[in-house]
Design a protein around this nucleic acid. Structure first.
Length: 273
DNA sequence: ACCTCGTCCTGGTTGC
DNA sequence: TGCAACCAGGACGAGG
């Protein structure tokens, strides 16, 4: 389940291998990848073009091309890029230096979309709120967003328009760091709690990037190696284990339809008044 | 507008 | 041991 740290790790690894390289051949093996149909026949449009930049916006990977087109890739649950042959290959990019870059996606939720430059920013802006590690993600912004939502704070943090790039894992990790119960109504957080939340989101994501993402089932770096973040989860997937802060047994519940792990003591649910 | 739930998918795990 | 049911969850659309 690639979230911001995993996508950023992939981006950083692809960038030096792709920038300045031409796409000699583009093979779409799974037609579902490029649905719903966009403006272009993806493979034909991309072949012969040159990659000028590899960027990330939220959980999207963006390959910018010399022609002014951009290939927008969302990995969803199990998508990933690899420099070696894989099972479940859904597309292949052949570069002018002989590199064969494989797009693998076991569950086929991932999407490829080709857009003109002019449409890229409006498209991404419609999907994503501020970058959590950028200047736009302030306590004030987060407070405003949380204040108008009654849903569990965890569910709101998973809304990419509130903050781009958080998924189920890092949302739980950030809530633990901020000592906030995931089921709290978003609007019930105090200003101080929102401030903790904002800092905790940044810290959780920075740690994930530093560890090059978390490898649970399908995620692997393009060079084939695993991330290391999974060894440092404080709560995610750790029900029955002691909280690293207070030794209370980690509990599991559901929030926003997602498995949700938290420490009942560090992240208490206040009694209703 | 907001909120919840079902859907898309496959493979690993669980339970009988 | 066999095999079906269940579970994982990002984004999106339907319905309340």
């Amino acid at each position: 389940m690639p979230e911001l740290p995993e996508v950023e790790t992939i981006r950083a690894e692809l960038e030096p291998r792709l920038t300045g390289r031409s796409l000699v051949r583009v093979e779409i093996l799974d037609p579902r990848l490029t649905r719903p149909v966009d403006l272009f026949e993806v493979a034909e449009e991309l072949e012969g073009d040159m990659v000028v930049a590899v960027e990330r916006r939220g959980k999207y990977l963006v390959l910018r091309l010399e022609s002014g087109l951009a290939l927008l890739v969302h990995l969803r649950m199990t998508g990933g890029f690899h420099f070696e042959p894989m099972t479940h290959e859904r597309a292949v990019l052949e570069l002018d230096d002989g590199t064969r870059l494989v797009y693998r996606d076991v569950r086929r939720f991932g999407t490829w979309l080709v857009l003109e430059d002019a449409l890229l920013d409006p498209y991404l802006a419609g999907k994503n709120g501020p970058e959590p590690l950028g200047r736009g993600f302030t306590t004030s912004w987060l407070a405003t967003q949380l204040a108008r939502r009654r849903a569990p704070v965890k569910a709101v943090l998973l809304d990419q328009r509130v903050v781009a790039g958080l998924g189920n894992i890092y949302a739980d990790e950030a809530l633990w760091r901020a000592r906030i119960n995931p089921l709290r109504p978003a609007a019930s957080l105090s200003r101080a709690e929102v401030a903790r939340m904002q800092r905790a989101i940044r810290a959780a994501l920075r740690t994930g990037i530093a560890r090059q993402g978390s490898t649970l089932r399908d995620y692997a770096r393009p060079d084939g190696s695993a991330g290391a973040m999974q060894a440092e989860f404080r709560v995610y997937g750790r029900d029955g284990e002691p909280c690293p802060r207070c030794r209370t047994t980690i509990a599991k519940t559901r929030a926003g339809g997602r498995g949700t792990w938290y420490c009942p003591r560090c992240q208490p649910l206040p009694a209703e008044s």
